[in-house]
Design a binder for these strands. Structure first.
Lengths: 142, 142
DNA sequence: CTGACTGCAAAAGGTTTGCAAAAAG
DNA sequence: CTTTTTGCAAACCTTTTGCAGTCAG
């Protein structure tokens, strides 16, 4: 699984640095994390690492396909490793809770977009906004 | 159509101000616009209006249901009036171009989310990211 | 009149950049 | 030894907030 991440970087002409390794490990261990959160995690091991390095590193890791990011709330994007199961985030605009569903659930929709618009969807990138079951239930009580 | 927007505001205990009218008109006429763009539009008529007023006004207008926003790119959200036809944005991550499709196209997906997760989707709020037909074609040439 | 609303300026949150020093290959 | 990468500090951009004056009702 977490094998030749270094190879991937090298193939793209990037160098292997402890910072890159640490950021990648942090992304893998935290699952979903904002740049700030990744910084905190990385700094547990290497206190001198800078936020700008996190950003630059994420850019590199994303470019070579080792990580991706998704826009969950309105604020900071969250990064996660690519080999994690692809999933879609359902964000409740009322209570803010996030639930994940496997990306396959969207397959017919993705196909429809491909057929009708020639559009190749990156399902994991966006979160779907709306109201979760709990909040809908709560509204009906009023 | 653009009738009693003032009534709606009043019903919610808000006051009617020229700024609110101008912002609402700007939202309606621009279709999709970022706060900055709305400011520019409003300032054509009332040069003294401040950006913070735009933000505060949009918040109010959104709360009473006269406008909504969608997250199109990574950066700025765009606001549009509620009575516009509901549509979904397909954002190409390669060229940045945006195409719209009618929201009905997503109906089976929305239903699936409702059935499986009890989740009521706000389709217009999110944009779908991926690659547009043109960019896919261009990649194949390489 | 009185409280809601606005303009202004300052602060905050998140991300980017220039540069010199440090490290990778 | 050459080039990339990093740390630091400052710049940037967008959004938010506090406050005093202004305006709608």
């Amino acid at each position: 699984m977490s094998r030749d991440w270094d190879e991937v970087l090298r193939e793209h002409g990037y160098r292997i640095t402890p910072q890159r390794q640490l950021v990648l490990e942090a992304v893998n261990s935290l699952g979903h994390a904002t740049p700030e959160e990744l910084l905190a995690e990385v700094q547990k091991t290497a206190g001198a690492v800078n936020l700008s390095t996190i950003y630059r590193t994420l850019e590199v890791l994303e470019q070579v396909g080792l990580v991706t990011h998704a826009h969950i709330g309105h604020g900071a994007p969250t990064y996660h490793s690519v080999d994690t199961d692809v999933h879609i985030h359902l964000v409740c605009d009322t209570c803010g809770q996030i639930q994940s569903i496997p990306a396959e659930e969207a397959s017919m929709f993705v196909e429809l977009l491909r057929d009708k618009a020639g559009f190749e969807t990156d399902v994991a990138h966006v979160s779907i906004h709306g109201q979760c079951a709990t909040c809908i239930g709560r509204m009906k009580l009023l």
